[in-house]
Simulated scan of single mutants.
Amino acid sequence: MAAGLRKYVEAIPGTPLPHGILNACTDVRDVDDVHELLGVEWMALGCCPVQVWRDPCLNDESLGDESPGAPVQKEFCRPSVEHAEPITVYAGSECSTMGWTYTEAREHAEASLELGEQQAVEAGFWSAKLAMTATDLTPAEGPVSIAQGVAALEGCLAEQYGGVGVLHVPAGAAALLGCCNLVQPDPATGSLRTLAGNCVIIGAGYSAMNTGPGNLPAEPGTAWLYITGPVVVRRGPTETVPDQPGASVNIRNNDRRVLVERTYVVATTCTVCAVQVTTCP
C-alpha cells in the first residue's frame, strides 16, 4: 500500500509504571511556592538513636561500700540539617509549521511529559542523590543474590533509622523479587512491601541508570539496589516555553518548537545504603 493512502490516527497512549517514584511509596506534594522549588532544607528527624538507660544503682557492680565513681552520663545527639536539590525535567516537540499548529505541538509535548516525567525524575534522583551519598554494603567477594541484598539493605536501614523506608529497585531487576517472595502487594495502599514493611519503588529511570556509588556503571549481569528513609516529592506546575504561538516559530527554517517542563524536589532522610546484586542465576 502506498504511504499516501494511510489514514492519520491518534497516537497510541501509554501509562507510566505503576510502582514508580510518583506513586504510593512517596508523599507527592504539589507546590506553587517557587522558593520550595529552588531546593529545601530541614532538621533531620529520626536519625538520632533512642538509647536504653541502665540505672547504675541497679548494677551488681555498684553495690558495696566503695564509691561507684563518676555518675553515668546520658548521651545527647545533635540533629543534622539535611537538604534536597531541584530536578527539572522537560519534553520538547519540534515540527514544521505546515504540519502542526502551536496547540497541537503543545499538546504533544504535554502528553510526552506526562508519560515520561516519572522515569526522568527517577534517573535524576538516582544519579544526584542515591549514587552520590550511599554507603556500599557489597561484600569484598562481590555481588550477592537479590535476597541477600535486600536483607543487607533492610538491616542497614533498621540500624540507622528504625522506621519504614523505601527500597529502590531498577525495573530490570524487579522480576527477581518474586523468586523468593521478597515483595508482596499491599491492598490498602496499592504499594509493594517487603516482609519487613518497607515500601518498594520499581523504577524505569533506575533501570536506565543502574549505577553504583559514585555513579560507576554496573558490570554486566548485575544491578544496584538502594534503600533510604521515607521519600517526599515536591512537584511544581508545568511551564510551557514559549507560551505564545508566534515565538515558537524559527523563521529561518519555518520549524516550530514547544517545550514543556516541570521542577521536582525529591527528599529523603537519614541514610542511603547500596548493594550490588547478581541478575543471572
Rank of each mutant, 00 (worst) to 15 (best):
C77N: 10
V233T: 15
V249R: 02
V260F: 00
E154I: 01
L192I: 09
P170M: 06
S62E: 05
G229K: 14
G236R: 09
K74D: 15
G163C: 03
A84N: 06
Q244Y: 07
V89M: 02
G69I: 01
G46I: 11
T88C: 06
A158Q: 11
G64P: 10
P185L: 01
A11P: 15
Q148I: 01
A208R: 03
A175V: 02
A175R: 00
G165F: 12
R252L: 10
S67P: 14
Q118E: 14
A70R: 01
C57M: 11
S127H: 07
E41Q: 05
A204E: 13
P79N: 14
P18G: 06
P281T: 11
V150M: 02
D65Q: 07
N254M: 12
Q184I: 09
H19P: 14
H19F: 08
L22R: 03
S145K: 09
M43N: 13
L137Y: 13
T194L: 00
Q51V: 04
E261I: 00
A44S: 15
A24K: 07
W53L: 09
A152S: 12
E261T: 08
A11C: 06
A204Y: 00
C180I: 00
A173E: 04
T26C: 11
G229Y: 15
Y206F: 07
C156A: 14
L259K: 09
R252C: 08
H168Q: 12
A247C: 06
